[in-house]
Design a protein around this nucleic acid. Structure first.
Length: 198
DNA sequence: TGGCAGATTTTA
DNA sequence: AAAATCTGCCAA
């Protein structure tokens, strides 16, 4: 069990070498893991959003490369973590070719591992309020801003194959943006109880 | 249960 | 000035 290769393999770098729209859907059902000092917390990805780079008015990359968004312009499979609204951090997976600035925002997880640690970080006992939002899941997993740029194919922050069992994917408009708000670039697993909004 | 104001600070 | 958000409070 412990040495079952299927349970110990990380998603390979090649997995991330595709456009953000495709990656956003491929990430649904996969497991996001962070080996923090307080424990190894994890969840299954159930909601994502694609950001398309310099041509996407809703993307942080729309006005070109800056210090803040530099990671998005780098290679796929790395973490882009940004600070927003004066108090929250959100986590993205960089997609596509280097230079394209494509990324996938992870918006919600289904809690999976070391749930008690996540409960104490979130100060709530409600499972459905643990990781049902982009800033919530960062807080629950304990993901720190210093992990911005981290390689997601190795510890301590990584993805591994999850268990998606054929739930249909729903596409809707992205949440919380004012530009390009009509594009159907938000994806979630139909019927999942842990998405941020129906 | 749903809508809205307030928090709080970086970024453009 | 607005922001890829969350929480608490209020009304119904």
């Amino acid at each position: 069990m412990i040495n079952n290769p299927a349970l110990t393999e990380f998603l390979p770098a090649a997995f991330y070498q595709r456009g953000a729209v495709e990656l956003a859907q491929a990430l649904l059902g996969q497991r996001l893991v962070y080996e923090s000092a307080q424990g190894t917390t994890s969840g299954l990805i159930v909601e994502t959003e694609a950001y398309l780079g310099e041509d996407d008015p809703a993307s942080h990359a729309f006005r070109g490369q800056t210090k803040r968004n530099a990671v998005m312009f780098g290679p796929a499979g790395h973490a882009y973590i940004y600070f927003t609204y004066g108090m929250h951090y959100c986590f993205n997976v960089v997609a596509g070719e280097a230079g394209k600035a494509q990324a996938v925002l992870i918006r919600a997880l289904e809690p999976a591992g070391e749930i008690e640690v996540m409960r104490s970080r979130r100060h709530t006992s409600d499972l459905r309020n643990l990781t049902s939002g982009p800033a919530k899941l960062v807080q629950a997993l304990g993901i720190e801003p210093s992990l911005n740029g981290a390689d997601l194919t190795q510890p301590p922050l990584y993805l591994r194959e999850g268990k998606r069992q054929g739930q249909p994917i729903v596409a809707t408009a992205r949440i919380g943006i004012t530009a390009a708000k009509e594009l159907p670039l938000r994806f979630y697993l139909k019927g999942n109880a842990f998405i941020s909004k129906p």
